[in-house]
Write a protein that binds this DNA or RNA. Structure first.
Lengths: 258, 258
DNA sequence: GCGGAGGTGTCGATTAGTTGCCTCCTTTGC
DNA sequence: GCAAAGGAGGCAACTAATCGACACCTCCGC
């Protein structure tokens, strides 16, 4: 997730959102599987025609990896609908400590919890991969809500969903130890990105220790130490940019649900 | 905040909500003053007639101090509108650790983040004082939303507001130390319940150390220690059921905003 | 091939925060 | 009036997690 220069990949011409069939995901720290498996897609309830209309109203923007989409403290105006790529939403405290709320994929929108603006962003958003987003201003949103009933419902569903995400994160951070949170995250990663590999599950995602640390709300070093400890216990094996989980059940025990 | 038996106070006959003029508050751990000063009241946008209609549709319920209003894990159906009293919304992890989201007063509703049900409660709600609530089921909510436009907007505002609360809490828990969080809370308490007293501010609220601990996400003992430390520094003086703050500025420094 | 940047592993010191236990003070019930 | 119960507060031992620093490794651009 470094911000190193990348060969700018060509931006796809046709919007995948028009098809309305992408397996949208949200990657975040939670114990509620329902939250991460099926975030409600904003476009799900719309006809092809309505989808086109929404996209026409918005302003398409290409965001390269490492570039900021919006920043905490800056004025808020509307939302960003993700067409492709992955957006990391995070917050940095005055002290420099950082917490990642979630990684959002195509079909979701970011830039909440407010919809119409009139405030400031409380989170920041950065492109975790080269991404394409559609910016819908507060003004445009009002118009679309009035015009397309399904769009309004989709937005409310989206807001409700985000509410659940925030609240799940707060619960995790408030009541679970870092170790438990890490176990949670690993189970979730295994679920989402895991590939079965002769009895074990390989997580091939390119998350650095720092990325994981931000997701569980801990320091990079502590994640390194914890992973090493888990490795010594035979629960998993950490190779570079790849984690192989041998004993998923042990993680569940650690998490506190078995 | 103990659940000791209380002499049941008479329940007021007329609903204060009909007047639509109570100074509603939400007590929670956040750095955003706007969040706590003015939570949007559900009834603010309604005419007296509409208010009556909503109250007629709901089922009134008296909840005595210490009694549960809803519990995490139980099926969710609709929301509870607070007519009088104070409801504490909290979560208990399997390990027994507990975190308080907020204390909500008259004019607010609890039982989110979902509106219509079809899920389970993720938080629990308990009466912190003898309270009167109006239960609006998911079905009733749908009807009211369709009938009264202002009610729908009020609900969306409420949801958005709750989203901000959750997200503020997550940010606090993820990036601030317990000490900083306690400073936050004390400032906020001084703001809300504080009474000026010859240069100092007296917080007379009957919050126990355990209550404070649950609000900042720490143990009762650590709050005791921290308060004692602050007392040694001359920042405040903790008497029983009363905290006198001498040096509010020191708390601000501790919080990291000066 | 060299230098830089970013990621990882590790160590030691320190602190933040927890756990368990104990005492004191109120309240309640008889 | 007194015993029992339970909450509130305090002390001490312990551990979880942070902080800062540094060495190493690998990938990448030049």
């Amino acid at each position: 997730m470094q911000t190193a220069p990348l060969h700018a990949k060509p931006v796809p011409a046709a919007s995948p959102l028009l098809a309305g069939s992408n397996p949208a995901q949200a990657l975040l720290l939670t114990e509620n599987a329902a939250l991460t498996n099926g975030p409600p897609l904003l476009f799900q309830r719309l006809t092809a025609k309505e989808r086109e209309e929404v996209l026409r109203e918005g302003q398409k923007r290409v965001v390269y990896r490492g570039k900021m989409l919006f920043s905490q403290g800056t004025p808020h105006d509307g939302i960003f609908l993700i067409e492709s790529g992955r957006i990391r939403v995070f917050y940095i405290a005055p002290s420099g400590r950082e917490i990642t709320l979630a990684y959002w994929s195509a079909g979701n929108f970011v830039g909440g919890p407010e919809l119409f603006g009139q405030g400031q962003h409380v989170w920041s958003g950065v492109a975790a991969t080269n991404s394409v987003v559609v910016h819908l201003t507060g003004k445009t949103l009002r118009r679309l809500i009035a015009q397309i009933p399904g769009f309004a419902i989709g937005l409310i569903e989206g807001l409700t969903f985000k509410g659940k995400c925030y609240s799940a994160l707060a619960q995790m951070l408030g009541t679970r130890s870092v170790t438990e949170r890490l176990a949670h995250l690993l189970i979730h990663l295994a679920d989402t990105y895991g590939v079965k590999e002769e009895g074990a599950i390989a997580i091939g995602s390119a998350f650095t220790h720092a990325d994981l640390a931000h997701m569980v709300g801990a320091t990079r070093q502590w994640v390194t130490i914890s992973l090493k400890r888990l490795q010594e216990q035979g629960v998993l094996k950490a190779e570079k940019a790849k984690i192989v989980v041998y004993d998923l059940d042990a993680l569940h025990v650690m998490r506190g649900d078995r």
